[in-house]
Amino acid sequence: MASPTTAAKTQPDAPAAPPAPILETRKLVKRYPNGDVLAVDNVSLSIEPGEYVSIMGPSGSGKSTLMNLLGGLDTPTSGEVLFQGKPYGAFGSLDALRAKHLGYVFQSFHLLPTLTALENVQVPMFESSRTAPERQAAAVELLKLVHMEHRAGHSPLRLSVGERQRVAIARSLANNPEVLLADEPTGNLDSKNGAEVLDLFDKIHREHGVTLVVITHGGEVAERAERLLTYRDGRVVADQRR
């Protein structure tokens, strides 16, 4: 008769639990103080590691508010957002969550006008333990990634709008984020510069495995994504995987 120890060894291993979504919302609601605007209306969704997701909807539909909630830049009225299965509220400091795990690209770039391109890329790194030489070396490599190393010493005022967005993308990758959130990243660009920025996103996603979530109201941007969430009046009304 087999001993309990031997019997236990012959039991098949239990299947491993699937990994948690990298981003998840549960019954998320955002109502503005006057009570008349429900920008996010009971939204529950999950985004898996390595996905390229576009959230498309008309202006005023609440999609940028959803992005701000996903990025920890705003707090919900009710419901919760989770990163890798852990509610944002459990992180203690949203600053630490943003600095370590999330990157942002904004329509208006948000570069500091008194700093050079090289210095702007280094700004998020001050939350890390890297030394000054390490920060500079990393920033140079990121500017090379977006083909802006030749403009490293220029201030944003001396850059074209397309160049500013490239620098902003480099900055968003400063701390090797798992998730890159982009809010209308081509909204201020002409078609040529817009296409070049989208090509960069394709490369970052393909070569670096970053999870991409891009907010847009245009089909051209949405067509690049592997998954399209259609957003209307504070709700996800369609979820299409390509």
Rank of each mutant, 00 (worst) to 15 (best):
M1N: 15
T6E: 15
A7R: 13
K9R: 13
Q11L: 15
P12N: 04
P12G: 13
P18I: 09
P18C: 00
P19Q: 08
I22K: 03
L23R: 01
E24M: 02
E24N: 09
L28G: 02
L28A: 07
V29M: 15
V29I: 07
K30V: 11
P33F: 14
V37A: 06
L38V: 07
L38M: 08
V40G: 01
D41T: 09
V43E: 12
V43M: 05
L45D: 00
P49L: 07
G50K: 03
I55S: 06
G57A: 04
G57R: 11
P58N: 11
K63C: 01
T75W: 12
P76W: 11
T77F: 00
S78Y: 14
G79I: 08
V81I: 11
V81E: 10
G85Y: 10
G85S: 03
G85V: 05
K86D: 13
G89P: 05
F91Y: 06
S93E: 10
H101E: 15
H101W: 07
G103C: 01
V105I: 02
S108M: 13
F109A: 00
L115F: 08
A117F: 06
L118P: 00
E119L: 09
E119A: 09
P124F: 05
E127A: 15
E127M: 10
S128M: 01
T131K: 08
A132F: 14
E134H: 04
E134G: 01
A137R: 11
A139Q: 06
A139P: 05
V140M: 12
L142C: 07
L143G: 05
L143M: 01
K144G: 07
L145R: 11
M148G: 00
G153T: 10
S155A: 10
S155D: 05
P156S: 01
L157H: 01
L157P: 03
L159E: 00
S160Q: 01
R164D: 07
R164E: 05
V167F: 02
V167S: 07
V167A: 05
V167M: 05
R171Y: 11
R171N: 03
R171I: 01
S172Y: 02
N175M: 04
E178A: 11
L180A: 09
L180Y: 04
L181A: 09
E184A: 11
S191A: 07
K192L: 08
N193H: 00
N193K: 10
V197G: 03
F201G: 08
K203F: 08
I204M: 01
H205Q: 12
R206D: 15
G209R: 07
G209T: 07
V210P: 10
T211C: 08
V214S: 11
E220L: 05
R227D: 04
R227W: 13
L228K: 11
T230F: 15
Y231N: 09
V236L: 06
R241T: 14
